[in-house]
Nucleic acid binder design. Structure first.
Lengths: 227, 227, 227, 227
DNA sequence: CATGAATGAGGTTTCATTCAT
DNA sequence: TATGAATGAAACCTCATTCAT
């Protein structure tokens, strides 16, 4: 009825480590897999634990992936915040540094975008509500912090940084999905887009967006004087 | 729901009509529903047909929704093409007209974005490959046509219009999903974003993007002279 | 993805037959089994059908067994009704005939009591409410009919027959469970009760009950003049 | 709930106390709950102990509830024994006193019938066999003692008291279950039975039974002269 | 003695698709 | 052509019990 495979994690540091093990296993499997969430059984196997053990650390399977997502975007924002706080130069330099870092980060952690593409909607369908609320709160806090850093670095009005971040996120997510759609269909990327690898495409699109957003803040609401 | 009781559709116009009936039923159900695809049984019921009959017109359930998606985005692009071809004035006027129309169209056909949010990834998982190829081809053709219209109207280099359209689509899709995530979690929209309804947010973001994209086409790849 | 094992039951008589097949399979398995409900997979296998097919005829597994129970007790009451309506003689003769038949019937259909011992409570935990209501209604109707037959046959006041039946049922059920408990524990029946097989015990107990119930209807509420 | 934080129970009186604590917790939870057995974790929590500790005092969860059942029915029989030994008067008086006390006792300890309704069958499925044997032995002994008291008090032949007790128990159990079924289904009690609360119904039925049983001991086997 | 982390078996139901009628 | 009965894969989480600490 039992084994004694995994040593019991009594100390809280051991417990944290085990939690991390599970997250890592989930991330590995998701990266390897086809785009849908691995099963709980697979995660347990990969983590070297029993199925039941997984549920000692996470209340539902989705909670695992939500944690991964939170962690992933948290790191992105952390990095962005630091960059904006430390980079010296004019706006263009700061923005370019941020976008370069962002694109590089996302290239390195492609599972983040793959996971994100599921849509929080998928995860939310089966998450304990309190966990969901906690995640949203933490996510918002991080967003605000990085947004503030942007406001300061670029001398923007309060809240504008958050806005920029959200639209940056939206554009990133949308582009990724377009690329995924193309890849998933085993078809050449639509049109000549094929020639543009994702990282370059993303860089270009984001650059255009930030360029427009910072050029004429006053005009952003009506577009009457575009060009 | 109709009980048109299976008059056999021999003439090809009847067949087309029946196909349309099914598509309409699927759209209705999806609009009404919770975000996931209605079941084949539900579609058949709503269309007043038997389950088996649906499969005489579509090889998989996903094909139905892919057709809806193709049709929906096709209409968007059609409208865009016409607008760019007929609007007179400077770039700013044309772009503003396009964006206004786009946002209005999407507001009116919200099921399009809802369906789109599933990700083609979801639909692709279960679509006959040949149908997929055909869809992509048609989609690409329409995209190119509208892209060309943009190239002409705004005097851009060939292919730039397609690029702008794709990024416009990406930003739209990404923003929509962010809004959906927030709603789905039954939480207030992240940060003060709550104050911005989707249509306005979309309009602002797209305006910023087009502004940046058209301001300095030459600089789009490096961002060295942002601001 | 499919077989063509079972011929499609299109005619409603075929459908009824298939329903019966499933019920029979469930009964067989339950009789053979250890007292808990067989799994849906087992039932399908025994019936020579696919798991999914079972769910075309019953909405939940429990519904199957509830149907068995309804049918079983229905037959008991049917038989009782007929007996009371056709037996001639004095009260004692009629009651004795009824009890004899009842005991014999239950001996022959021991799965009925075994199933009953689960308690409707077990089945109710997972039954469509409308089915539950329908069952109760049918059960009540049959009970009333047999009760009326008793009222007439024994010249009792209206409703007394139902009362007698319910208490007869209660005593039967309770005794059966006591016997089951003893058997299940692989222990000799408690005390010298071992010498009394269930049928005899039941017969004796019921005879005593009916004897008491019919002896002094007026005194039944206070017992002041027992003996 | 108590957090008595694990003072090690060395002395055997402490151990007995802890055993009682667990039993009490189980009873409380069962009374409060929905009819199925509380989980081991819940019991431990309610008792202010760790899950593992519970298993130092009971080998299986079912053993706990079996103990509760044994204790409960033991008390009932104890009370019955005393009553028969102390009540003075004729048979009718003694029986009436017994039944009155029985019904009152069961009304006060409704968890006993609720637990009983699970059927020993449920508990037996997972009880150490030796414990089961011990319980049965103790149960039988108590039954015999009370049975003897009845034999003496009512001047019955040896063993008749046990028989009466067992049938009394069966009728009680069966009636209770019928009432539970009706309640569980959220439907009005079958037929007009609704008007009779359980205690009254039980009293009536038992009175009738004892009346019949004591009226004609010689005739109990054939019922030839009922009425 | 006490603790609580780890284990892993177990079963229901839905639904896309097919094919006998 | 139209029908709708038949198919069967797929995966979550709970919870009694054990044993390392």
């Amino acid at each position: 009825m039992k084994k004694q495979n995994a040593a019991h994690a009594h100390a809280s540091e051991d417990k944290a480590a085990r939690r991390t093990t599970i997250l890592q296993a989930a991330k590995t499997l998701f990266s390897r897999g086809s785009g849908s969430l691995p099963t709980a059984a697979e995660i347990a196997l990969e983590a070297g634990l029993a199925k039941g053990t997984v549920y000692l650390y996470f209340r539902t399977k989705e909670e695992i992936f939500a944690a991964l997502l939170l962690e992933g975007w948290g790191a992105v924002m952390e990095e962005g915040q630091v960059l904006f706080q430390t980079t010296t130069g004019n706006r263009a330099v700061k923005v370019a540094a941020f976008l370069t870092a962002l694109v590089a980060h996302l290239e390195k952690h492609s599972e983040l975008l793959r996971l994100d593409a599921l849509g929080y909607g998928v995860l939310e369908r089966n998450m304990p509500h309190d966990v969901l609320v906690a995640h949203k709160a933490e996510y918002t806090a991080r967003l605000e912090r990085t947004g503030s850093a942007i406001d300061s670095a670029l001398r923007l009005s309060a809240g504008r940084g958050v806005e920029l971040l959200m639209r940056t996120y939206a554009l990133t997510r949308g582009l990724w999905q377009s690329y995924q759609d193309a890849e998933a269909s085993h078809l050449p990327h639509v049109a000549r887009r094929a020639a543009n690898p994702f990282a370059r495409e993303l860089r270009e699109a984001l650059t255009e967006y930030w360029h427009g957003a910072l050029a004429s803040p006053a005009s952003s609401a009506n577009g009457s004087d575009v060009v």
